[in-house]
C-alpha cells in the first residue's frame, strides 16, 4: 500500500477512510458542460482510490486519444448528444478499450427510457449514472463498474429487469416454437385464429385424426396442456 495514501487517510475522520483503498482506479472523463464537470469533480473529491488521469471537454477525438494514451480502468462519459450518437460512441469506446486493455465505460446523462439504457448497455457501456441520482453514489458507481459489474439507477432497475425477462422469455419461446414442424406450426396458427379441428383438417387437406395427432405433438413440444394456451402462443408468436 503506498505511504502517501495512508497519510491522506489519517486526515479523514470517517470510519470508511480507515479501510485501505484496494487500488487506484484510473478514470478518463469526458464532459463538455462546465457546470456538470465541476459537479462530477466535486463528487469525486473525497475518494482516495479514484484518480482522474484525463479530463476532456472539447472533442470526441481528443477524448478517444486520451483513452488510448492513459489506458484507464473506467471511462466516464457524460453524453448530452442524441442517443444514436451515444450508441456509436459506446461502440467506439468499446473498440478502443478492447485494443488498449480493460477500460469499462460508465455513462452519465439524463435518459428517461429504460429501453434506451438497455440498448446502450448492449452497445458496450457497463453502467449508467443518472444526473438525478445522488452525487455521493458516483464514486461507488465507478468502483462497481471497475469490478466488472453493472451499475444502473435503482428506480430503473425493475423496469429494465422486466424488459430483460420479457426478452429472455421470448427467446425461450421462440426456441420452443422452432421445434415445431411446418405443418404443426400451421396448425398452431389456425388454432390461434379460432379454427376447429374440422376446419383445420379441411384447410390443410388432412384428416381430422392427423390434426389431432399434430395437436398432441404440439402439446408435448410446447409443454402445454390446453387449446387456449396454444391459441395464446399462436397470437403471441404472430404479434411479437
Amino acid at each position: 500500500m503506498p505511504k502517501g495514501k495512508s497519510k491522506k487517510r489519517t486526515a479523514k475522520p470517517s470510519a470508511k477512510a480507515s479501510a485501505p483503498p484496494p487500488k487506484n482506479i484510473r478514470v478518463v472523463l469526458y464532459c463538455p458542460s462546465e457546470i456538470i464537470l465541476s459537479g462530477i469533480l466535486k463528487a469525486m473529491d473525497d475518494s482516495l482510490d479514484i484518480e482522474i488521469s484525463a479530463v476532456e471537454k472539447n472533442t470526441l477525438e481528443s477524448f478517444i486519444d486520451a483513452i488510448k494514451r492513459s489506458h484507464p480502468h473506467v471511462v466516464l462519459f457524460f453524453g448530452s448528444e442524441p442517443l444514436l450518437n451515444i450508441r456509436e460512441i459506446c461502440k467506439a469506446i468499446q473498440d478502443v478499450s478492447a485494443a488498449s486493455g480493460k477500460s469499462r465505460l460508465l455513462l452519465m446523462g439524463n435518459i428517461p427510457s429504460h429501453e434506451e439504457i438497455v440498448s446502450l448497455i448492449n452497445s458496450g457501456a457497463r453502467g449508467y449514472f443518472d444526473l438525478n441520482d445522488n452525487a455521493g453514489q458516483l464514486t461507488e458507481a465507478i468502483r462497481v463498474v471497475d469490478r466488472g459489474e453493472i451499475w444502473l439507477p435503482r428506480d430503473k432497475m425493475s423496469s429494465i429487469m422486466d424488459r430483460i425477462i420479457s426478452v429472455v422469455g421470448r427467446d425461450m419461446k421462440e426456441k420452443t416454437l422452432d421445434q415445431l414442424t411446418p405443418t404443426e406450426f400451421q396448425v398452431l396458427r389456425l388454432i390461434g385464429q379460432g379454427k376447429s379441428n374440422d376446419e383445420i383438417a379441411e384447410m390443410l387437406f388432412i384428416s381430422k385424426n392427423t390434426v389431432r395427432s399434430h395437436i398432441k405433438s404440439i402439446y408435448a413440444k410446447l409443454d402445454t396442456h390446453s387449446r387456449l394456451q396454444l391459441a395464446l402462443y399462436a397470437i403471441n408468436s404472430a404479434l411479437f
Binding site: S166, G169, T224, H225, Q229, L232, I235, N236, L239
Partner: peptide, 8 residues
Amino acid sequence: RREWRLAL
C-alpha cells in the same frame, strides 16, 4: 403455475 404466462 403449470402454464407460461405471456405478456400480451
